[in-house]
């Protein structure tokens, strides 16, 4: 029975997964924050990431559309900040991470990048709501990974 209680365990847990598993668990991180973004392109990326037999060009197409989704909702320099839109931006970034073709994968792997961006998305929605609520996203992500490792 694996239990994850801190970031080091979380990161190591993610990195020992195969690339396909990293994409799949990343997809579940994104799914967890998908309510913050209203965009079909994100659901598409999740579907592709979960499909372990997804072809290279399918990944590339999903990556491209997820990136486009991110660019559609970032806040322009000097524009008034809209934190709920901004949450959508990070969800889209997380979605693009899980379908990134191998050459575009950044240092810590797709699941880790997706986890970080999903947390950012949650943070943005909390800023938007203007409450003092503490984000529970990290703990939720630990549970998701535990589920996968223990299944």
């Amino acid at each position: 029975m694996t239990e994850i209680t801190n970031e080091t365990q979380f990161k190591q847990g993610l990195q020992q997964l195969s690339l396909a598993d990293q994409r799949a668990v990343g997809a579940r991180f994104v799914e967890h924050v998908i309510s913050l973004a209203d965009d079909e392109r994100i659901s598409f990326a999740i579907r592709v990431a979960k499909n372990k037999d997804a072809a290279e060009d399918e990944l590339a197409a999903a990556f491209k559309s997820a990136k486009a989704a991110a660019l559609d909702c970032y806040t322009r320099c000097g524009a008034d900040a809209d934190w709920s839109e901004q949450a959508g931006y990070f969800v889209a970034r997380a979605a693009s991470a899980i379908v990134a073709p191998e050459k575009d994968i950044s240092g810590d792997g797709p699941a880790w990048t997706a986890a970080m961006n999903s947390r950012m998305a949650r943070t943005c929605s909390i800023i938007d709501a203007n409450t003092d609520a503490e984000s529970q996203e990290t703990g939720q992500q630990y549970r998701i990974l535990e589920d996968l490792l223990n299944s």
Binding site: C77, G78, A79, D80, A81, W83, M120, T123, I126, I127
Partner: peptide, 12 residues
């Protein structure tokens, strides 16, 4: 200029 307040920075 984008209306980013301190709590937002602190959250980041």
């Amino acid at each position: 200029p984008m209306g980013v307040k301190l709590p937002a920075l602190q959250a980041q």
